[in-house]
Computed example of a mutant assay.
Amino acid sequence: MRKFILSLVFALIALPSFSQTVKDEVAIFQNAFGIEKRTLIENNMKVDESKAAEFWKLYETYENSRRAIGLKRIQNITKYAENYENFTPESINAIMKNALDVQKEMTSLWGSTYKKMSKVITPVEAAKFIQAEMYIENTIRQALLEQVPLIEELR
Rank of each mutant, 00 (worst) to 15 (best):
K3E: 12
F4N: 10
S7F: 02
S7D: 14
L8A: 00
L8Y: 01
V9C: 01
F10I: 07
A11S: 09
A11W: 02
A11D: 12
I13Q: 11
L15A: 07
P16K: 04
F18M: 08
F18S: 09
S19N: 08
S19Q: 12
D24N: 04
E25C: 04
V26L: 04
V26W: 03
V26E: 02
F29R: 04
F29L: 03
F29E: 00
F33V: 00
G34F: 00
G34E: 00
I35S: 07
R38D: 05
T39V: 04
L40S: 04
I41F: 15
N43W: 05
N43E: 15
M45W: 12
D48F: 02
K51F: 10
K51N: 11
K51M: 13
F55D: 09
Y62L: 06
Y62T: 04
E63A: 07
N64Y: 02
S65N: 12
S65W: 00
R67A: 08
A68Y: 05
G70K: 03
G70Q: 11
R73E: 04
I74T: 08
Q75R: 08
Q75F: 02
Q75P: 00
N76F: 01
I77C: 03
I77F: 05
T78K: 06
K79C: 04
K79N: 09
A81V: 01
E85M: 01
N86E: 06
F87I: 05
P89L: 13
P89A: 13
P89G: 08
S91G: 06
I92H: 09
I92Q: 05
N93S: 11
I95H: 01
M96E: 12
K97N: 07
N98A: 14
A99W: 04
A99K: 07
L100S: 12
L100N: 14
D101Y: 08
V102N: 12
V102R: 05
Q103C: 04
T107L: 13
S108H: 14
W110A: 06
W110S: 10
T113N: 09
Y114D: 07
K115Y: 12
K115G: 01
K116C: 03
S118N: 10
I121V: 15
I121Y: 05
V124F: 15
E125F: 03
A127W: 10
A127I: 05
Q131S: 15
Q131M: 11
Q131V: 06
A132S: 15
E133Y: 08
E133S: 15
E133V: 07
M134T: 11
I136K: 07
T139E: 05
I140C: 07
A143T: 03
E146Y: 03
Q147F: 00
E153H: 13
